[in-house]
């Protein structure tokens, strides 16, 4: 498999491919959004504006399926940022890869002697991947969600939020804590695993050389689909978690 270059920056180990990937997907997301809102019009929206408005409506629908309609507004931006960023990130690793065959020790790119020894003097170093194919990145996203969920839970819905840890009996506290921790962990792992598996399979198919082209086409199409699904899932799960923690409705009183 490919190795990813890690640079030592003082005490920090910076994974260059992750930084590049994050930078690129952030910039692409910004560009897409900015292009879409370039010529805003109330009565005569352009194609891009229509598209982004469709995305907004879609995310609005997604959030509204998780919480009461009147609470959707504050989370709309978050949901949109999540779904756009994750979707673009997921697609980033699909079209091509930048891979170097390194035969020499290059400490600046994190190619150490051990690495070369491990791969028999020929390390494949990749600079290109989906940022979401890196567990650290998805963990970062899940951490953001975790913080938002529990901050909102404590701030807006303190009584019920705290009570839910002792629900239905105080003895369930450990179970509830495990549940609380498992939520962001599964969030991060699910996204990472799906995208990472996709990319692993792509590089595996690439080893087939010419024979692999139809498989590659099929798998890239499927990865497109998986990328969309995972972005959607991450967003809706975030909203569901927020809804569970922060929003207590009279309708839920009987639970």
């Amino acid at each position: 498999m490919h190795e990813f270059p890690v640079v030592q920056l003082g005490p920090l180990n910076i994974d260059i491919s992750t930084v590049i990937a994050l930078f690129v997907s952030v910039v692409i997301t910004m560009l897409v959004a900015r292009l879409a809102v370039r010529n805003l019009s109330v009565t005569n929206p352009g194609k891009m504006q229509n598209f982004l408005e469709w995305v907004v409506e879609f995310v609005h629908g997604v959030i509204a399926s998780a919480m009461p309609l009147n609470r959707v507004k504050p989370f709309l931006s978050l949901g949109l940022t999540l779904i756009m960023f994750i979707f673009i990130s997921n697609l980033l690793g699909l079209p091509f890869g930048i891979t170097f065959e390194a035969h020499h020790v290059n400490e600046a790119l994190g190619i150490t002697q051990e690495l070369l020894d491990e791969h028999h003097g020929e390390a494949h170093v990749s600079f290109w991947k989906s940022p979401t194919a890196d567990l650290s990145v998805t963990a970062g996203l899940a951490l953001i969600v975790f913080v938002i969920v529990h901050y909102l839970g404590l701030k807006q819905n303190r009584k019920h939020y705290l009570k839910h840890y002792f629900h239905p009996f105080p003895i369930f506290l450990p179970v509830n804590i495990i549940e609380t921790i498992s939520k962001p962990v599964t969030l991060a792992l699910r996204l990472f695993a799906n995208i990472y598996a996709g990319e692993v399979l792509i590089s595996t198919i690439l080893m087939l050389k010419w024979v692999g082209i139809p498989f590659l086409a099929a798998w890239q199409g499927f990865s497109l689909f998986v990328g969309g699904i995972q972005a959607f899932l991450f967003t809706i799960l975030t909203m569901v978690y927020i809804s569970q923690a922060a929003i207590h409705d009279e309708a839920d009183e009987h639970h």
């Binding site: 992750t18 930084v19 940022p131 990145v137 970062g140």
Partner: peptide, 14 residues
């Protein structure tokens, strides 16, 4: 480090 970078870039993006 990657996690922190991811969080920062997401916040900037947001």
């Amino acid at each position: 480090e990657s996690t922190v970078i991811a969080i920062i870039s997401f916040l900037i993006l947001y």
